[in-house]
Design a protein around this nucleic acid. Sequence first.
DNA 1: CCCTGATTCGC
DNA 2: GCGAATCAGG
Length: 229
Amino acid sequence: MSWTDERIATLKKMWEGGSTASQIAEELGGVSRNAVIGKAHRLGLKSRPSPVKAGEKKKTVKPAAPAPKPAPKKAAPRVVAARPAPAPAPAPVAKPAAPAARSDNSPSQPMPNKNADLPKIVSVGPGGFLRQGPGDQQPPIPPAPPRRLVPAKPDPSIADKTSLLDLSDKVCRWPMGHPGEPDFHFCGTAVNPGFPYCVEHCGRAYQAQLPRGARRPPPPLPFGGPRVR
DNA sequence: CCCTGATTCGC
DNA sequence: GCGAATCAGG
């Protein structure tokens, strides 16, 4: 496999978009994770926030190491990229809109609803989206696509859909479908300002927390994992 | 051991 | 230029 312009473009997009080298390699197909990393470095896109660690030590030779190892040929002056990290995703922490009363003491207030009628917590998030209770959605899946993707090559059968290359911080990045599927795309509607998703998907991404003991058990997933559209 | 990215170096 | 091998860290 050769590095065509399209493949390089995809590599750049995904690399800058935070995808791991493994994900990029699987998406491109025909290349290994190392190939992706090597190419990324050759392209100059190195040193992005890696999960391994921030202040990572390179395996460069120890300056005072008396090891009998031969001296490295190339003394590459490592340019530390001072590029600021991309905007971190806001994680609004919100208290429950209606704190549930303790059931063990102070029974002065009668409880109108028992476990048969769980309270629906709907509050308004800081961006204006409606927060929902955990049980109100069928799929509590994270917005990020699964790490292990189906082995499929990217096929450009999606014309009007928002593809990976169309992503920007102006459009909703909520994934629609599954990567590798022919119609996999992203939501693409205008984002809720200050959030990576639109208002609707903000409501999915940021959920109110029900008080302990009043939580509904996780909704039964059919089989084969979540599949949402 | 799994994963991650970084680096080296023969091709 | 490419990428497997290897390394270093979580």
